[in-house]
Nucleic acid binder design. Structure first.
Lengths: 140, 140
DNA sequence: AATTTTGCTTTCAAATTGCAAGTGCAAATA
DNA sequence: TATTTGCACTTGCAATTTGAAAGCAAAATT
């Protein structure tokens, strides 16, 4: 299933071929917030992704090197997902999505608070958060 | 058809509810490159969008205030589409997509050239291009 | 040993996509 | 003036994808 077929060699089109759907970036979002998630964690998110769709997206994202699967330290039944560097590098994009959304949607206060922080020093936020996510991905 | 239903009040999810599919951002891309496009222009793009999908996406983007329709100066048979401010504000996002793609895809030289320019002064590029697009949207 | 949790897979109806052909109006051409 | 062409869609239909629900095997808990 699903090796990457690029519709064209346009950067936008090629990117959308990987994560251009209604769900993939929500998985990435969850991993940026939580650093690492189990299958069940993703299912708990507010948008209520169907379990079959979740499975297929996780596979797609793994095949395309955005996330990795690793074993949970305290249980063989659980699986941990986390972002690869390629996934972490989606952070600037994620930030811009938030900034756009802040301008055009009414958002809950907790998210607004974060966005306000980001706006004070966007580059700084990206750098710091990137480091945090990288640090997390090194403690295998 | 299709008033916006937000799956949750998360900024990412809400944004994806509008343009989170394989085609919408390609339409936005075309409009950022060309300032204004006819229906036929969109059909000519490399990714070969199906005409019914194009029609439904244009409607969706218009309903959500990302693009506007206006009459072509020299023919009633033609329709011009262009970005609204809300659509122009997707530029920073579009820039980040390009920067991410540059890191992880091999891209044609003409696109790489643009991306290299952008990287020299990202903020400057966004500001200048935003102005250009705004200027275009004022000469009705 | 029995039950529950976890990470999926399967099933199937409903929705969306993609391809091809068609429609209606405007403008260019004969 | 009649006719063909161009443009912006719409329609029909098969194929793919989605979404909701149920099922399943291995591991953990009771």
């Amino acid at each position: 299933m699903s090796a990457l077929k690029r519709r064209s060699n346009c950067p936008v089109s090629s990117s959308l071929d990987i994560w251009g759907d209604k769900w993939s970036l929500l998985i990435v979002r969850d991993l940026m917030f939580s650093k690492q998630c189990t299958y069940g964690d993703f299912l708990k998110s507010a948008e209520k992704i169907a379990t079959n769709i979740l499975a297929s997206r996780l596979q797609m994202l793994e095949e395309n090197g955005i996330i990795t699967k690793l074993e949970h330290p305290d249980s063989k039944a659980k699986v941990l997902y986390k972002l690869t560097q390629k996934g972490i590098d989606l952070l600037p994009l994620m930030v811009e999505i938030n900034l756009w959304a802040e301008k055009y949607f009414s958002l809950p206060e907790d998210r607004l608070a974060i966005i306000r922080e980001v706006k004070k020093d966007k580059e700084g936020f990206v750098k710091a958060t990137t480091k945090e996510l990288q640090r997390n991905s090194n403690l295998t």
